[in-house]
């Protein structure tokens, strides 16, 4: 009998849960298991990891038996690559900039312009104007209105 993946969505979902469950068990290896009577810190997460892997195996193996729907939108062309990667990267960049005290104002401008790049058509003039307006609004509300003690620029330390 030849095994054929009939439902790629379920197959990969199963794999993902197996990985997550395995990760949980791996990370819990240093935590004391204890017994059912005296549960150690490792007891609950290890069991959960095992159960999650179990679900992963069931979901993944059913993918060989039950036909999935026609178009699952899993094809490489059907992922929203640009918004997905650009938005998460921009947000991470914003986090780092705030952490290194680059300043609230420049970090926000980077965030807004970066986010705007996630859209398939970028109108530069509009985007820059938007970033200035939103930053001004945010500074007015958060720094002056709510009195958040954020450094506005890197030089104003």
């Amino acid at each position: 009998m030849q095994l054929k993946i009939k439902n790629p969505q379920d197959f990969w979902c199963g794999i993902l849960f197996i990985v997550f469950g395995g990760l949980a068990i791996y990370l819990s290896r240093d935590y004391e298991m204890g017994s059912a009577l005296r549960m150690g810190p490792g007891y609950f997460p290890t069991w959960l990891g095992g159960i999650l892997m179990g679900f992963g195996v069931i979901i993944g193996s059913l993918a060989f038996r039950i036909e999935g729907e026609e178009n699952q939108g899993l094809g490489l062309g059907e992922w929203a690559w640009r918004p997905w990667l650009v938005l998460t990267a921009t947000l991470s960049l914003f986090a780092v900039l705030m952490e290194v005290e680059f300043g609230f104002v420049p970090s926000l401008i980077v965030l807004i312009i970066g986010c705007a790049l996630a859209h398939k058509d970028v109108h530069w003039r509009e985007t820059i104007l938007l970033s200035l307006c939103v930053t001004a609004g945010a500074v007015a509300i958060f720094s002056y209105g709510l009195g958040m003690p954020y450094l506005l620029f890197w030089w104003s330390k």
């Binding site: 965030l111 807004i112 986010c115 705007a116 859209h119 985007t127 970033s131």
Partner: peptide, 8 residues
């Protein structure tokens, strides 16, 4: 225009 504002 909306989504960069929401993201901010």
């Amino acid at each position: 225009l909306l989504f960069p504002i929401i993201m901010t």
